[in-house]
Design a protein around this nucleic acid. Structure first.
Length: 441
RNA sequence: GGGGUCGUGGUGUAGCUGGUCCAACACGCUGGCCUGUCACGCCGGAGACCACGGGUUCAAAUCCCGUCGAUCCCGCCA
């Protein structure tokens, strides 16, 4: 049995320098066609590696491009020539074209300009095409690199990747609303988090992670919420307390930043990314102390409130940057009343929890903490909240049969990208975002 | 769930204290010119019943009401 070679002797636009003088075969989209007159046409060919320029001078070949609009797909055979005038130093001469797919209609909006001139709503209606724009590609290349680096760092620390179900039978977990669906006549729900399963799997592998979508039926309408987003979850056993998890998270974040710094130079430049300040140890502040600081420095008295408002997080983020030269800030010890039942309390003051949020440039990026690990503690926690054990019976079985002290966290991938790239809307960090109004495309 | 703002050719905007707007500019599309452009340039052209419905007025893109759509903030969450 023989297979056709995947790359079929095709040369990519970023490989021209190693083929100078050769006759090569290329293929891609006509990103831009610049017809300078009867005598010369420049075609910018876009493939997965980038864009290169093809110079067309033969009248017959120029005629073969008549009527083709941007985004037409072509195969090109031509000679690689070193040319100082060309961006990148090389271009294709004496080409011949085979049209694989001709475009004759104008695009909904131009995608070959440095900036995309379309409202978010318009863009999303045509995301199928808009995503081809180099600036948009770069966002999702970065996104892929972040997810890759997340896996890479955790693989290196003995974690095992898992895939937990997104269709689940019971919906009692945290405060977030769930989407109900009909499952062969039974009531089922879309998972709002892999929380239960990743804890259960700590009992199997000690250390696990998952990169997968989660579903939130919250009716929110803001630039930093989606109803479906990618959660990068990790959970590990045999921790001291939540600070062990914070140390792990710090290493993960720094590992991700290192990775994209060394692998995504092109995207970072194109998107004008200011690399985050990420010191060896991220500064941390205890929840009630954060409220006290807000009261003293901004005059707003939120002391006693169970949570921080977005504005508070912004202030704290600015403070961390100025005081500690860090774009990241841990806020620890969120009140127990605001945390789900599986959260471990602070043993020294049980009003507060052994949990944390990580703020990235003043926006909540990660939630994590230590979980309860003894069955008796779960029984008490459920009772205190008026919940029944039956509702979470299979989850609880885990804790009857030996679970180590453990904890973990969940990073919102789109949030990470949004804050990294300084996007004004989380929807710009999702390929096909799902919000209250949008389920198409 | 509560509140604010907006709705003008395919796209992005100007006009919006009513008449001079059968609507202007840029991108895109299109006809012509240009053999080194790379956000090419130059000269033309097509394309909008100014979201929809009603009202005020001699006169409405412009003022009022309603509907729909979009968007942002708060709450909730990552």
């Amino acid at each position: 049995m023989s297979y056709v070679e995947v790359d079929m002797e095709r040369v990519l636009s970023n490989e021209l320098s190693s083929h100078a003088g050769e006759r090569v075969r290329m293929a891609g989209w006509m990103h831009r066609i610049r017809r300078l007159g009867s005598g010369i046409v420049f075609v910018h060919l876009r493939d997965r590696s980038g864009i290169c320029q093809i110079v067309v001078e033969a009248p017959g070949v120029i005629a073969s491009l008549d009527g083709l609009l941007a985004e037409s797909v072509v195969e090109v055979e031509g000679t690689v020539v070193a040319e100082a005038q060309a961006t990148g130093g090389y271009e294709i001469h004496e080409p011949s074209f085979t049209v694989l797919s001709a475009v004759t209609d104008a695009l909904p909006f131009p995608i070959n300009k440095p900036v995309i001139n379309a409202h978010l709503d318009t863009f999303l209606d045509h995301a199928m095409i808009g995503l081809r724009a180099p600036v948009k590609q770069a966002v999702f290349k970065l996104s892929a690199a972040v997810a890759h680096a997340f896996r890479d760092v955790l693989d290196g620390k003995g974690f095992t990747e898992i895939a937990t179900p997104k269709i689940i039978g019971s919906a009692s977990e945290s405060g977030a609303n769930v989407f109900a669906l009909d499952y062969f006549g039974k009531q089922a729900y879309l998972a709002q988090s892999p929380q239960f399963y990743k804890q259960i799997m700590v009992g199997v592998f000690e250390r696990v992670y998952e990169v997968a979508p989660v579903f939130r039926a919250e009716p929110h309408q803001t630039v930093r919420h989606l109803n479906e987003y990618v959660s990068m979850d990790a959970e590990m056993g045999f921790i001291q307390d939540h600070t062990t998890v914070m140390t792990l998270l710090t290493e993960v974040i720094r590992g991700i930043l290192d990775y994209i710094g060394s692998h995504c130079a092109q995207e970072l430049v194109l998107l004008n990314v200011q690399m985050p300040l990420a010191p060896q140890e991220f500064p941390r502040i205890y929840f009630p102390e954060a409220q006290q600081w807000i009261f003293e420095h901004h005059g707003e008295d939120c002391r006693g409130e169970p949570d921080l408002a977005p504005q508070h997080e912004k202030w704290l983020g600015e403070w961390a940057k100025e005081t500690f030269q860090s774009d990241f800030l841990f806020v620890t010890g969120y009140p127990m009343v605001k945390r789900p039942f599986y959260t471990a309390p602070n043993p020294d003051d049980t009003r507060y929890s052994n949990s944390f949020d990580l703020l990235f440039r003043g926006t909540e990026l990660v939630t994590g903490g230590q979980r309860l690990n003894r069955f008796e503690d779960y029984a008490r926690a459920l009772e205190a909240r008026g919940m029944t054990q039956e509702a979470v019976a299979s989850y609880l079985e885990t804790f009857r049969f030996g679970m180590p002290p453990h904890g973990g966290f969940a990073i919102g991938l789109e949030r990470f990208i949004m804050q990294l790239v300084n996007l004004s809307n989380l929807r710009d960090a999702a390929l096909f975002p799902r919000d209250m109004e949008r389920i198409q495309p």
